[in-house]
Design a binder for these strands. Structure first.
Lengths: 140, 140
DNA sequence: CCCAATCGGATCGAATCAGTCCGATTGAAA
DNA sequence: TTTCAATCGGACTGATTCGATCCGATTGGG
C-alpha cells in the first residue's frame, strides 16, 4: 500500500515541469537540478513518461521534453500508471494473470474491483495542476 | 500501488474466519485448508494479525485464534495496516522518517496528505463483514 | 564533416518480500 | 504426576522486484 519511489519522483518532476511555460523545452538535467532527483534516475523516468505518452520527447542537441497535454488534463492516476503499470491492488483485479492459486471460488474477489475502482477514482480526481501548487513561482 | 500478497492472503483468511460462528476456535491449519493459503504462510500471517490485535490467540492443544472484534468492526484499512504497516503512500506522509533527500521546499508534499487520507478513507469504509459476503452469518 | 548534447536501452547492486523450518509453550490424557 | 501431542512464535534462507548507474544510439549545430 505504498507508492514506489519512482512514482513519487515522477510526480515531483512533472510538477516542476508544469511550473514552466507551456512549450518550453525541458531537459532531464534541468529538472534534475530543480527537483533534486538524481540525474540518471531522472533520465530513466522521463523516458518512461515519454513512452507512456505524457511527455513528448525530442532528441539531439537542444532536444528535450515537454508536456503532451495541459497540466489540468493529466491526473495522478495517469502518472502512477505510467510508472508502475496498471493500478491493480490484487492480482485478481488485473485482467490476464489468473494465477491466484487459491480456491477457484474466492469469495472476496468480486469485492476487490469495487475497492480498486474507488482508489483509482480518488487518484484520477487529482490533476497535475493541483499538485503543482496553483499559486507558486510568485516572487515576494 | 499494489497490495502485497501477504495482505491479500490476510483478507482472504480473515474473511473465511468471519464466516465461522463467533467464539469458535480457529486454527491456522483449518483456515489454511479452507482458503488454500500455504500453511506456513498462514501461520505467519495469523501471528502478525494477532500481534496487531485483530485476533486473540491461545496456545497449546486445542488452542487457536478468534476474531477480537465483530467482523463489522474490522475495516480493510485495519487489515492492511496490520500486515504492511502504516498506510503512507509516500515517505513524506509517514511521520518520522524525514529522509526525503529532495529539496526542503518540496511543493507537492502538502498535497500528499490529502490524497493519502482519501485512500485511507476508502479502505476504512470497507468492513470485513462486507468482504466476507454480505448475506452470510445472518440467519434466514 | 566533426563535435557536443541529449535520449534510449541494458546492466548491476540492494532492499524487501514471500516462503519455510525449528524451537517454546500449553493443555489434555494416561 | 508424567508424558505426549498439538499449536503458536520467532529466526532463517531464497527469490523477486525495485532503485540506481553506466554506456551506446541519435540528432542538431558549428
Amino acid at each position: 500500500m505504498r507508492l514506489s519511489s519512482l512514482a513519487d519522483y515522477a510526480v515531483v518532476m512533472l510538477s516542476a515541469a508544469a511550473r514552466h511555460a507551456p512549450g518550453e523545452r525541458l531537459s532531464a538535467t534541468l529538472l534534475s537540478d530543480e527537483t533534486g532527483v538524481p540525474l540518471p534516475t531522472a533520465q530513466k523516468l522521463m523516458g518512461r513518461l515519454a513512452q507512456a505518452g505524457l511527455l513528448a520527447s525530442a532528441r539531439g542537441t537542444g532536444g528535450g521534453f515537454l508536456l503532451s497535454r495541459a497540466a489540468s488534463a493529466i491526473s495522478l492516476a495517469d502518472i502512477v500508471e505510467a510508472v508502475e503499470g496498471p493500478i491493480a491492488m490484487t492480482a485478481c483485479v488485473d485482467d490476464q494473470r489468473h494465477d491466484c492459486g487459491l480456491e477457484g471460488a474466492c469469495r472476496v474477489k468480486p469485492h476487490w474491483s469495487v475497492v480498486n475502482n474507488t482508489i483509482r477514482g480518488a487518484l484520477d480526481g487529482v490533476s497535475l495542476a493541483m499538485l503543482s501548487g496553483a499559486s507558486t513561482g510568485v516572487p515576494a
